[in-house]
Amino acid sequence: MYETTYHRPSSVDEAAALSARDAEAKYLAGGHTLIPVMKQRLASPTAVIDIGRIPALIGVEVSGDMLTIKAATTYFDIMNSADVKKSIPAIAHLTSVLGDPQVRARGTIGGSIANNDPAADFPAAVLALGATVKTNKRSIAANDFFKGLFTTALNDGELITAISFPVPAKAGYSKMRHPASRFALTGVFVAQMKNGDVRVAATGASQNGVMRVPGIETALKANWSASALENVKISPNGLIADIHGSAEYRANLIKVMAQRALG
């Protein structure tokens, strides 16, 4: 790892001020993506700004039909949150199949969303539920947030503070885990919103990162059941093909994971 300077600000404003002073600085929460890429020298921030202990960025709140998870809340705390389990149990389940216990103790939802790894789990939940990503500057709708591989709508120095999820009528998540990395070979989050809208998002499948799956959404809107997807065909165009699986394999996985996500 190249040399860097560590900062531990005590507030969001202090963190943003540190970032504004140094264009090459990076925010650090759990560090379970940033530190590995720093070790590989693929990232060499002049400074890391540790937001992982800022109290305003940690915690879970439910208000009416909205579940808000603050950005630096760890996967472990999300998985065990009574509020998450009660309001959107599919998110608690997603967190329980993400990484391993030690990784869940450190990794954060904000870090996952900001990094937008094409095989990360949380982008699927954020997109499928039509969540709102809150930053220190503005609110960004999930539809506008994910911009392709490792790319988001965040501007330089902009810091995610929380993610607000509308509580759905029904939701589920299922993924085929890569057995070594535990990333999603393909994962699908299905959601039926309280207004009857159906939204489905797949991660690990597309070359452009997390994506909606309109064919499955239409079928589930007509009939919310696994059997409704029997004859749905997913196109392999634009899907990832690598040593782990072909584009056709992933196209099939999208359907099968959606069926399993329906429970």
Binding site: Y6, R8, L28, G31, H32, I35, P36, V48, D50, G52, Q102, V103, R106
Partner: peptide
């Protein structure tokens, strides 16, 4: 995993 924690953290 202490290989993925900076001493500052």
């Amino acid at each position: 995993k202490s290989c993925t924690v900076l001493v500052g953290q």
